[in-house]
Write a protein that binds this DNA or RNA. Structure first.
Length: 213
DNA sequence: CGCCAGGGCCATA
DNA sequence: TATGGCCATGGC
């Protein structure tokens, strides 16, 4: 990965160190968190997941009445939609007997297409589940990533898939590296690349265009 | 009080 | 392909 994209990775890695995601106990908890965190602060997701008191399983969600499920996840916001999303995503998982290894034996592109067919699972949620729950080498693009490449002098493309392909074509497919890079982009984004650019002290200061959204 | 967070769906052009 | 409205809570 000898290109200017790797310079971003190197700069962030030197500054922040070896960050890792995803804070979850089981693959299924990753899936749930991926839904609950949609346009939502992670602190709110933690409150919602905490409501389950260490009993967060596909079987429980499957049998829980919709209203009860909504009560539990309310702190994460958008609870009416997300309760539906959790239901259908859980159905999908159960259609594989909740067998992660069985899913991992399928082609990445196939699983990705299936996830995108689940109502409530878009590009980022699908990639988050693929990478963090199933450990497929797929890169997760998010709002911070899009923002970074709008401001950085690299033509990574305009759409989600374009930016994703741009990165994946320049950085070898590696679960650990993709995990770390995404975590670094988000950490940096929280400090320096929100809607308002806060470039002071940013490890990319000087090479970034500093343009605004 | 307003802004915004680790999006996605849907209608519209 | 690309906007815009909508969904909802909690931290700051």
């Amino acid at each position: 990965m000898n290109n200017s994209l790797s310079e971003i990775y190197q700069a962030l890695f030197l500054h922040y160190g070896d960050l890792q995601w995803w804070p979850a106990k089981t693959p299924y908890e990753v899936m749930v968190g991926a839904i609950l965190t949609q346009n939502t602060a992670w602190t709110n997701v933690e409150k919602a997941i905490g409501q389950f008191e260490d009993d967060l399983t596909p079987e429980r969600i499957h049998h829980l009445p919709l209203e009860k499920l909504q009560d539990l996840i309310r702190p994460s916001g958008f609870y009416k939609q997300k309760s539906q999303y959790l239901k259908v995503l859980t159905e999908w998982f159960m259609s594989y007997d909740c067998d992660v290894k069985r899913i991992q034996n399928l082609p990445l592109s196939d699983v990705r297409k299936e996830l995108l067919g689940v109502h409530g699972v878009g590009n980022e949620t699908a990639d988050s589940i693929l990478l963090y729950a199933f450990h497929f080498p797929t890169f997760v693009v998010d709002a911070y990533t899009m923002r970074l490449f709008k401001r950085y002098p690299l033509d990574a493309g305009k759409t989600y898939v374009q930016v994703k392909k741009f990165i994946e074509s320049r950085i070898p497919a590696d679960v650990l590296v993709y995990n770390r890079f995404h975590a670094l982009i988000v950490q940096n984004g929280k400090e320096h690349c929100k809607k308002k650019a806060l470039c002071e002290g940013c490890p990319l200061e000087g090479s970034c265009k500093k343009c605004f959204d």
